[in-house]
Design a protein around this nucleic acid. Structure first.
Lengths: 345, 345
DNA sequence: TTGTATGCGTTATCAG
DNA sequence: CTGATAACGCATACAA
């Protein structure tokens, strides 16, 4: 494999000159540049990234961290989608993506430590935000450049992050349901350790309170962000004496689980119960009936994360930023006016 | 940041000794090992991966290459799924994943050259296989370790790959349709440059021929592996004088497009036309009606790819392997006995 | 404009 | 069992 020295020899210059040609240093004469480039061609020379990284202290790579192993997370289309956006943003600045492969939370943490201390990446994008996250603390302490997709639980002012206004979005959809006449509205969210769950729950609560509707603990369910979670939630909610007539579901995948389970139970959507959910992944359009869902523009979330991550890397004095991606409610076929109670009719 | 030298100083040994302790070299006395380890603790020392890579000529990382940019490919759940499997396999041996972010074919090629020549990864997994692929040729020529998920177009005996028996699978599903009484069976595949398309087409043709059914060029459609592709195919097929009564679709995502378009046109599935497709992604179960699909065990495909990739990396004399993951037909609700022609009834 | 020398943090080869 | 010392391939401060 040809090294910089071989090129130097062939072009009859010093290695440092070759290095400068690679960097396209303006203080090298065009003549020698040409000679060196020819030699590089001749030898099929390609710079060794690793060596360059060591000398440079920079890798042109961004680390991507998911809440659990890729193995699990990738089951929710949210993650491939963000990565699509990240990839797009990274590509514009010629950055590569680096993913650790740990499975347990502990392994993932170790993976990040490796990335950071081992200098395998120039920055890290966290694809989640959870309460009291040790990873976040670690990165802050190490002063390592990172950005969060989501809202930091603490240190909000000190961490560049890109997020939606989940509180408002959730409040809005709940209000939408209220306007449709619903009074018994349940909330189906993910694990309360995730900040996104908290925000969406808070928005829901706010709307309920403002409308003067009774707030019932029984109507708040937390399950995993997966199809199965939706099923569990329905099972619980519809064994209540007074089951809800509308559901705010914090994730499309869960919502699909909800839909399917409701269908199995012979409960009609949207006739008997309305459902609105979040994310607007492709599945939302394809589900039966098509889901009314909040489009949070996942790809853009990722794109902005990458773009800002790179800015931070390339300009260490870049100010902390908070980027809010606007959301839009996509009305499809799972919401409906509440039908009158039979007693009254 | 503490380096090996700092540790050496603190433990009053030579840097080389510290290095040996890290590698847990047996010829170091337990006593000094202890001393060194304490110093590492004290200083919060973590080895620098980049430096180690340079000295070692090995990065513990595997490159992942998709047919088009991550941005596009990730739209088809096939890719996140394979990566799930790869991640699982890589994790067992502590390998990280590295993804280039090129968008055009040319950029992707450049990305691979970077990875290989720049020694950024120890091996590469190609997540596709296409006819006359320049990337494959490049890797063979460079003698760089790589494995293909899919069947190589050329050099089949010289490239370790993990694949399904797509020819047989396709033949089987076509036979299934024939047994149900269908005689006008169309094939909707992806781009013919992909070997997987070829194999599935060939299996289909074989079944058609064996059954003595007429083979019509009009019944062979090639579109993109996306939902939109399915739509286009239906539009073409059902403007024929004699539209098919059954479809073999080479990808679930396309099949969903097919289903939706058929629905819009008022054509009943499976009453009017039967559909069977490939991959069995989650969507297949969720579509309406649920898709009959060939489960190709995507995750396992990825897992085996990673496992064998690592074997090749760690043991250069590892023999070339061909791993076939078994497939299974998952019958759901898109296949049906052909209904009698009205004329005859 | 170009060359020399040194460092980046490890590993590996010799000695001892 | 342990210590010098030379790679690994490139970048850069300092000379010239």
């Amino acid at each position: 494999m040809a090294t910089i020295k071989d090129v130097a020899k062939m072009a009859k210059v010093a290695p440092s000159t070759v290095s400068r040609v690679i960097a396209n240093n303006p203080r090298i004469s065009e003549r020698t540049k040409e000679r060196v480039r020819e030699a590089m061609q001749e030898l099929g020379y390609h710079p060794n990234f690793i060596a360059r990284s060591l000398a440079n202290q920079s890798t042109q790579a961004i680390g991507i961290i998911m809440p659990s192993s890729a193995d699990k997370s990738f089951q929710n289309p949210f993650f491939p989608e963000v990565i699509r956006g990240i990839s797009k943003g990274a590509h514009q600045k010629q950055y590569a993506l680096h993913m650790a492969t740990g499975e347990t939370e502990e392994e993932i943490f170790e993976g990040v430590v490796q990335m950071v201390e081992g200098k395998q990446v120039d920055g890290i994008i966290l694809l989640y935000s959870r309460v009291d996250d040790q990873l976040t603390n670690f990165l802050i302490e190490k002063q390592f450049p990172f950005v969060i997709v989501g809202k930091p639980f603490k240190h909000v002012e000190e961490i560049t992050h890109v997020d939606n206004d989940n509180y408002r979005a959730s409040k809005e959809v709940t209000e939408h349901l209220i306007e449709l006449g619903h009074e018994r509205i349940a909330f189906v969210g993910g694990n309360l350790n995730f900040v996104v769950t908290i925000d969406r729950l808070l928005g829901y609560e706010k709307a309920i309170n403002v409308a003067g509707l009774p707030y019932k603990d029984d109507y708040i369910i937390h399950e995993e962000f997966q199809e199965e979670g939706g099923k569990e939630a329905v099972l619980e909610l519809f064994s209540l004496k007074e089951p809800p007539t509308a559901l705010v579901v914090a994730d499309d995948l869960m919502a699909v689980g909800v839909l399917n389970t409701l269908h199995e139970m012979g409960i009609q959507v949207p006739a008997d119960v309305s459902v609105v959910s979040f994310n607007n992944i492709m599945l939302a359009e394809l589900s039966r009936p098509p889901l009314t869902s909040v489009d949070i523009h996942i790809v853009q979330l990722g794109y902005e994360a990458a773009k800002n991550m790179i800015q931070m890397i390339e300009n260490p004095s870049e100010p902390i930023k908070r980027i809010i991606i606007p959301h839009t409610l996509v009305k499809r076929q799972t919401c409906h006016l509440k039908k009158e109670d039979k007693k009254r009719a």
